[in-house]
């Protein structure tokens, strides 16, 4: 396939990935990697590299907007970034020793799990019990809610930290943002309100991605001609998505579309991995 055609196909696919990724809050990597590997027969290391770059772009772009609204808990993000970057660097370092088909199968499994996780009901929960460690680390915060400022506190910091190590590891290994896992760690373990956990997770994804990307960059896994249409496409899609998101409250049916698309693509990844085609 000539470069021009190849680039245009990736560009269109990435726009679509960025749109769905931003509407569901999962990021574009979920669709990009299967698209590149299964349909365009790109080496999975190149696909992971391109996905990482696009994750950094979307995370930084949307974090710029969220940070100004004052929802993101920057101290919490910075604290947990110690865990995610440590995990990410480890993941990126060991990725080279993984056979490509094993990466594909693992990615497929993680994608399906994460997609299903997004279907969970999100109850508004605000913890108020005192946690001395959270106070010492100044992790408790507040955000502008619909009826004035909402104060919240953070629980089970150790458990959250360990979960973030794992999320970072997967991010470095598979080139995904692990947004679903990060949100899960903050929602279910640390009892942080959903609004805060999603924006803070997004805030962290850029740094986690950068920690892995510096390793991939030097390995030559970030191929400019593939990353170029991916990053531009995902960014365009994500910008359109965030405009839609401001106007609509929740996108219930869109989540289902996303979950079905992801499960379809992930099954392809697992199948191709199993028969050794990737």
């Amino acid at each position: 396939m000539p470069v021009l055609e190849f680039t245009l196909i990736i560009l269109v696919g990435s726009c679509f990935a960025g749109l769905l990724g931003s509407l569901t809050g999962l990021g574009g990597g979920f669709i990009i990697i299967p698209l590149l590997t299964v349909f365009l027969h790109v080496d999975i290391h190149y696909a992971i590299g391109a996905s990482l770059v696009s994750i950094i772009a979307t995370s930084s772009g949307s974090a710029a907007a969220y940070v100004k609204e004052g929802i993101t808990n920057m101290r919490l993000g910075m604290f947990l970034e110690v865990a995610t970057t440590l995990g990410a660097v480890t993941g990126a370092m060991v990725a080279v020793y993984f056979p490509t088909n094993l990466l594909a199968i693992l990615l497929g499994v993680i994608l399906i799990t994460s997609a299903l996780l997004t279907l969970r009901k999100k109850a508004v929960q605000i913890a108020h019990q005192k946690n001395t460690l959270a106070e010492k680390l100044k992790l408790n915060g507040s955000y502008p809610g619909e009826n004035g400022t909402v104060e919240y506190s953070v629980s089970r910091i150790g458990g959250g930290f360990i979960m973030m190590l794992f999320a970072g590891l997967l991010s470095g290994l598979l080139g995904i943002g692990s947004g679903a896992l990060k949100v899960l760690a903050m929602d279910n373990i640390m009892r942080i309100p959903f609004k805060v956990s999603t924006t803070t997770s997004n805030f962290m994804i850029g740094v986690t991605g950068a920690a892995s990307a510096v390793v991939y960059l030097q390995r030559g896994y970030i191929e400019p001609s593939i990353s170029m249409p991916v990053v531009i496409g995902v960014l365009i899609g994500a910008m359109v998505g965030s405009k839609i998101l401001v106007k609509t409250k929740s996108s219930g049916w869109l989540r289902w579309v996303f979950v079905i698309v992801v499960i379809g693509l992930a099954s392809q990844l697992i199948y191709n991995g199993l028969i050794g085609k990737i």
Binding site: A210, L217, V231
Partner: peptide
């Protein structure tokens, strides 16, 4: 040139820290 842009992009969150 694309590579240079990608390096700048990777540097963005690092600069944020």
């Amino acid at each position: 040139i694309i590579q240079a842009g990608i390096i700048l992009l990777i540097a963005t969150p690092i600069l944020r820290i």
